[in-house]
Amino acid sequence: MPKADRWSSDEEEIVLLSLLPKPISHLDEGTYGVVWKARDNATQEIVAIKQIKFDSDMTKEGFPISALREIGVLLSLSHESIVSVREMVVGSTPDKVFMVMDCFEMDLQAAMKKGPGASTPFAQSEVKYMMRQILSAMAHVTSIARKYEHPARNMTQMVVTLWYRAPELLFSESCYGPEIDTWSIGCIFGELLIKEAILKGTGELDQIQKIFKLLGTPTDDEYWEQLWSKQGSTFKWKNNDSDLARTFAVNSFSATGQSYLSPDGFDLLSRLLSLNPKKRITAEDALRHSYFSCGVTEQVPMFYV
């Protein structure tokens, strides 16, 4: 195993060129140590180096679980749209462990702010390009993740960042699968269209209200009736109709600063944001959706070039 001094030159053991912006929506905040941009002395390549953060009780609990899981999974994934861990590197003491990863100039949130002018919407072709990347990465993860169907279900209610959290999780449903991820992708789709998070709840209850306001209250839905009666819920939710069509205008040219959205695109968006997780489209099926096979062809977003 290579020692950190391959990147060395000062006492900090790695060359710290500049600090990368912090990652945006992470699943387990605790694991995120600092990410550095560094040059690999052996190959001259620029890489991102993330130092694993250790809690003070490291002596009690050993290597942090969340970091251990994240590293293990990332090492077993291999997809062009998923950041790959090139190798693990250790320093002189056990609390110095680094992940060497491909370096990207920015994350999606930074890209949304940059673009060809912060308020200019992405072109339809660019949105499509990014959506395909996200969905095919997710399809890959899902196919691998099927291997880990059992573990850690209880903890995961809390893991997804609130704004991207599926409604069933907000109702403490603890048994779920990849549908919670496709919900998040639906949120990102909407966000790419208007360059702003679409469901910015201030707390769990507010998040639920925002979801029902945008998508309508699931009054006539088998899944929700079952869930609510199972939980013995007597709370009555205000009846809303779906606001989705008004929020995301189809076939209109950016009066509101929204990216152009084809009817196919709208259909995909509403299938990703299906309140009923059983009816939510899977990443695999989304990739086969007519949104990708018809209409404008995809194009690499401007911020890449």
Binding site: L68, G72, V73, S76, E87, M88, P94
Partner: peptide, 19 residues
């Protein structure tokens, strides 16, 4: 145990999710 955990992870190069 904790010291050995670290040694094992290094030796396995953190490859802990094999098929």
């Amino acid at each position: 145990i904790i010291a050995l955990e670290y040694e094992i992870l290094v030796a396995l190069q953190w490859k802990v999710n094999g098929p």
